[in-house]
Design a protein around this nucleic acid. Structure first.
Lengths: 203, 203
DNA sequence: AAGCTACCAGACAGACCTGTCTAGGACAAC
DNA sequence: GTTGTCCTAGACAGGTCTGTCTGGTAGCTT
């Protein structure tokens, strides 16, 4: 009601920034499906239905769009991992296994092509912002899994987190080859074995 | 000594096909270091020190060079895996763990950037020859590991081979992020756990 | 009405990419 | 000497890529 409140850009122009969302949504789709280099700016612009000038207003360079894409992927994938873990119940040990359901769900999805971060890292030289962002993502995931391992009372949470991220990354990496659900099932099974062995319980 | 023996191309022209080797060696280096798309034909030709016509004589298209590159990578990597396994001694169970030493050696090598096949698959659309070649490679590796698992007397060699390839691929995939030897050590450790658990021995 | 903001449409530049083509040199076989 | 093979040097075409720039439209604010 106050003039200042009415003056916020969102209130004044409901469509302000809308173009950015359309671009990012298209980039999300094309970058993942085709790869960072194979998806050209012109195609993204055309499929977004925006003008070129608008694109370069929001993303001064292609790398900026790629980083925004990775940010979005991070949010989506992390959310799916957390949701799968929580769906396994309150027991941290069960959550460590349950998070692998996110892998199975992902690989059943149409157009699944493995881990967007691994794929991005394969296309970017080390030292670039894109590469660094990928490393950060993987570190966050491992730190989260390590946290669960601590809560589960693992004697060596670092080692368990390492093992589980290896299996998870292996499952994701094999996803770029074929979206075989058997790999995801095997990953979950392997994770259960490793968690049991680490916690000293007999499966 | 016979005329026919002296008439073999290799004897007549020692340099025949030499240009092909130079091209392939340069491609091996650049494709792995920079990626398939980032490494341009012109650069490969320039660094090989050959003429453009010579290049296109041996490799009619870039894809042909990429396939030859993958063929070479297959030979090298498979050789390293086999060597590492054999170095662990005659026991198949020990070989299943020992093959992971190839991962540790690889990631200590300068310029290590993970698995060339996973990286190639990340850059190529599924259905292409490049993608198919990658799938074939991974199938061969898993079949070999499964063979070792059978020899080791694993009750479920398929499952053990799946688990071990997941860990191996996970180690290779994380190699494109950072050449952290800790990941390779953890992979070997995890493999030992899985082999012990599968064979019903207590570690 | 004037101004501002967000946007659209598309030409354009300059670099880089793959692949073709012409012209010719070095060397062994005959 | 002639022929055939393998090679070098590099111009060229036609396409694609990223990024810049000009000009014009719609709608809200003042």
């Amino acid at each position: 009601m106050t003039p200042t409140a009415a003056r916020t850009p969102q209130a004044v122009r409901p469509s302000a920034g809308h173009a950015r969302d359309k671009i990012l949504a298209t980039a999300f789709r094309l970058f993942y499906a085709q790869g960072l280099r194979a998806a050209g700016i012109d195609t993204i612009i055309a499929e977004s239905g925006v003008a070129k000038a608008t694109f370069y207003k929001y993303f001064p360079a292609k790398d900026d769009l790629i980083l925004a894409y990775l940010e979005k992927v991070d949010g989506v994938w992390t959310g799916q991992l957390h949701a799968a873990a929580e769906a396994a119940g309150p027991d941290p040990a069960a959550q460590l296994v349950g998070l692998f359901d996110a892998l199975a769900s992902a690989c059943r999805r149409d157009g699944y092509r493995g881990c967007a971060f691994i794929n991005a890292a394969a296309e970017s030289a080390s030292g670039t912002r894109i590469h660094e962002r990928t490393v950060t993502h993987k570190e966050h995931v491992r730190a989260w899994i390590r946290d669960l391992a601590v809560q589960a009372g693992a004697p060596d949470p670092d080692q368990l987190a390492r093992s589980l991220t290896l299996v998870l990354d292996g499952g994701l990496a094999s996803g770029v080859l074929d979206a075989d659900p058997a790999a995801a099932i095997a990953a979950r099974h392997t994770a259960a074995q490793l968690v049991s062995a680490s916690l000293g319980r007999n499966p």
